[in-house]
Write a protein that binds this DNA or RNA. Structure first.
Lengths: 113, 113
DNA sequence: TTACGTTATTCCTATGGGGGAATAACGATA
DNA sequence: TATCGTTATTCCCCCATAGGAATAACGTAA
């Protein structure tokens, strides 16, 4: 029972072996939902627009229905919105992700090395 | 409830934020224990001796007591053995790792996207 | 018709991590 | 003393990938 050692890990949802939803992509979805903009979401997360767009593209292209729908031009220059499917993904992933981290913390107490 | 989507993840034990025991390093420890040789363990896992040695070095250098003790020269050219601490790490990690994967499989059934 | 801010896409660079190769060090054995 | 197979370490190259920069495309508003 040493405080030095901790369990840690990462979690994602995959489809045919390909990771589609992980902590980063889900946080991006949340921020897109909040801001209505891929660019603003990217800035908030300290990443380039290019990287954010690639993450969105990755999710959409691996799913039968998109999680983000975007338009260019128009008021504000364009916009992006998270679909219902995207919101479902956020909700389910975050729920299990939280439980996962609770389990990690709990089990960390029992490490004896 | 789609069979397409699955939870997956990785798990490790870290010390001061530095990963020390993960699936790869623990498997390496097991094979070192079985073979008594870093080189043979590396061959079994399809990696270079150099990489295997670096993994051992990484573990030992981040712990107060080594998980592998090795000697060069002598009968067979040298040898390596896993310490009691190393065996404890193997046992505890594998146990939680198994439980983790059971949880992943179980939760995967409940994904609804 | 121009300006604007965003989405969408291409191109090119660089950088650092991985890995092979080479070599030193070592001690039992014969 | 030579051989052997392993541990231990350094050197160097390469290439995949991350990332910035540049640019096209678009539609509303004034």
């Amino acid at each position: 029972m040493s405080v030095k050692f901790k369990y840690n890990g990462t979690l994602w949802i995959e489809i045919e072996g390909e990771p589609v939803f992980g902590p980063g992509r889900v946080e991006l979805l949340e921020r897109i939902q909040q801001t209505g903009s891929i660019r603003q979401a990217a800035i908030q997360m300290g990443m380039s627009y290019r990287q954010a767009w690639q993450m969105v593209e990755h999710m959409n292209s691996h799913l039968s229905h998109p999680v983000v729908i975007s338009q260019r031009g128009g008021k504000g220059g364009g916009n992006a919105e998270v679909t219902q499917k995207g919101m479902d993904a956020i909700k389910q992933f975050k729920a299990f992700h939280l439980r996962f981290h609770q389990l990690l913390a709990e089990q960390s107490k029992d490490i004896s090395l």
